[in-house]
Design a protein around this nucleic acid. Structure first.
Lengths: 338, 338
DNA sequence: CTGAAAGCGCTTACAG
DNA sequence: CTGAAAGCGCTTACAG
């Protein structure tokens, strides 16, 4: 049979209140009494029932994280880092995987907010803020991660998407590239939109012609790079910017198989999954943009716990910066000079 | 204020029992009554409190998964597949990440089994069965995944480790390799042990000399491959078997950087993370062993739900088989023949 | 310094 | 066909 707090109280010869208080250190208990309680707990092998406790206090000590694609190393690493922060603060993390599907996101938000978690981290796949907002119970602690909405109703932690892409275009233009193609993730995502608009602005600023066909979109999941690349190659690009981490390795492989040499036949800049050792191989052949995933996760954990403790805290927006790692051979001769 | 079942009952003019039964479809309710209830629910925006419900019923509809390393794509993919199965059956998944640390595993098992989840999936990093067993409350539904103990007390879903490694050695021996090195994960893990013992047996069966220095162990996390490789290369191996998925890409990169050509200077066989597109690049240069991660996850989900429903169900052991993908150029001339 | 008791929001025998 | 009420295992004012 299940051992309850009353069993302990009975055996220790005290009230359940005293047992509860000694366990939780929530009011003074004399040392003798404490000892009796602990002895009884040990003898019975008592463990407080988390589900009763959270029902009673309304606190589950669980945070939910709605993730678009758990097999994407960017998110997997972020989850790891969020989990690390939370567990250090006595919280557990529940993951829900949407695979960039809005209905799945909807279902999961409903489920998790219905008494399962104390707060929610969301890397949303939605583009409609009203629809998203309607799912969140009033006052429920929410932090948007990596992807934001224009409406600033929720706290958010994300990465500056504009700067690295703008810089990429400038660097490529500086090398003499004129036809610069770009592949992004799902067009509806704020991250994709920011990146594409940085591209557009930089192209204009550098005086390079824009062309719709030079912009291609994938689905932010695996195996969408090749179709994009085919279209870009048709357009005879000098350079390609891959602004979606999942596409990076696919791109490298695909170009390799086509016999197109990086840094020679084509210039490449790519967002890269954090910590992915594969790219060190290509450090001398391409520029890489590395997102601060771990900081992102930690900041997200910090902010959601803050909101759980004080739901009325002011909205907070944090924008982190990616590292831009120029091709290690970029000091070589500019094309056309040789 | 929170809307409760009594608010609904009051507004609908029925008892809480009736509200509960119409929500859960758990006894006959007349259509008119149902309609009154649903109208009240809609009007008040009522959502049943999951935490009260699970406290009452003792069922949380949550499964816990203790994972050694969530950033390892093998486990990330498995999580995805478990989560898919569970959510299709109305369950949520909670992840705990141990980073191959026994203390963290202990803490997490204690936490999760104390009323947080209905059942537990564990890819354990422990080698001491007694210690593990002591953490599990009597009768608590547990399924071991990927890694097992000799004691057959719990159900398990894992992959046959013996066969692919045995075959690797035979294939390499058949190519004329004699000095075959192997790198494994943590020595304490059953998966590592099975692989190494398959190697030993195959080496003996093929009449190849064994040598302690040809066996190297990593830590089953990222960045442990290079040290192993250094030691193997010192021993002047003809071939290397990488029997830990995380090490695969590190190995390829490292050999590449050293100017050692796959299939020419050295033969390589490697376990490979599921679905990892990088390896298609090397399909003509190495043998790969691909584990059935998705099936593993699905089978694990199936078994844990079975045990949650009927905890007394007989112990079940499932062993899946990996795909062995021989190097696509292996039909070429055997070394020494040319 | 500690206890008696209410109550969190549900579900579910029991009763009619 | 439906209701009154007990009770799941805790925590926490209230009281002394």
């Amino acid at each position: 049979m299940k051992v309850t707090i009353s069993d302990v109280a009975k055996l220790a010869g005290v009230s359940t209140a005293t047992v509860s208080h000694t366990i939780n250190n929530t009011r003074y208990v004399s040392n003798e009494t404490k000892e009796k309680v602990y002895r009884a707990i040990a003898e019975l092998g008592y463990t407080p029932d988390a589900s009763a406790r959270s029902f009673r206090t309304g606190k589950k000590k669980i945070i939910g994280f709605i993730v678009p694609d758990i097999a994407n190393k960017f998110f997997a690493t972020m989850i790891e880092s969020v989990e690390k922060y939370l567990s250090a603060h006595g919280y557990q993390l529940i993951i829900a995987n949407t695979r960039e599907n809005m209905e799945r996101e909807e279902t999961n938000i409903r489920l998790l907010t219905a008494g399962l978690v104390d707060g929610l981290l969301v890397a949303s796949t939605m583009d409609d803020f009203q629809r998203f907002d309607a799912l969140i119970p009033a006052g429920f602690p929410v932090v948007l991660v990596d992807r934001v909405f224009e409406e600033k109703k929720y706290s958010s932690i994300c990465v500056s998407n504009f700067q690295p892409i703008y810089r990429s275009v400038c660097r490529l233009a500086g090398k003499g590239d004129r036809r610069i193609g770009i592949t992004g993730g799902l067009p509806r995502l704020s991250s994709t939109q920011e990146r594409i608009s940085a591209y557009r602005q930089a192209m204009a600023d550098c005086g390079l012609p824009e062309e719709e066909g030079l912009i291609q979109y994938g689905d932010s999941l695996e195996n969408s790079a090749c179709a994009c690349l085919d279209k870009l190659l048709e357009r005879r690009c000098d350079a390609i910017i891959v602004c979606q981490g999942m596409m990076a390795s696919e791109t490298i492989i695909y170009l390799h198989q086509k016999g197109i040499r990086l840094g020679k036949d084509i210039d490449l800049v790519s967002f890269v999954d954090y910590d992915s050792d594969v790219y060190t191989l290509y450090a001398d052949q391409m520029d890489t943009i590395i997102q601060p995933v771990e900081e992102l996760g930690e900041a997200a954990g910090e902010e959601i716990l803050k909101r759980v403790e004080s739901p009325e805290a002011p909205i907070f927006e944090k924008v982190l910066t990616s590292a831009y790692k120029p091709c290690s051979l970029s000091v070589g001769p500019v094309r056309g000079e040789a």
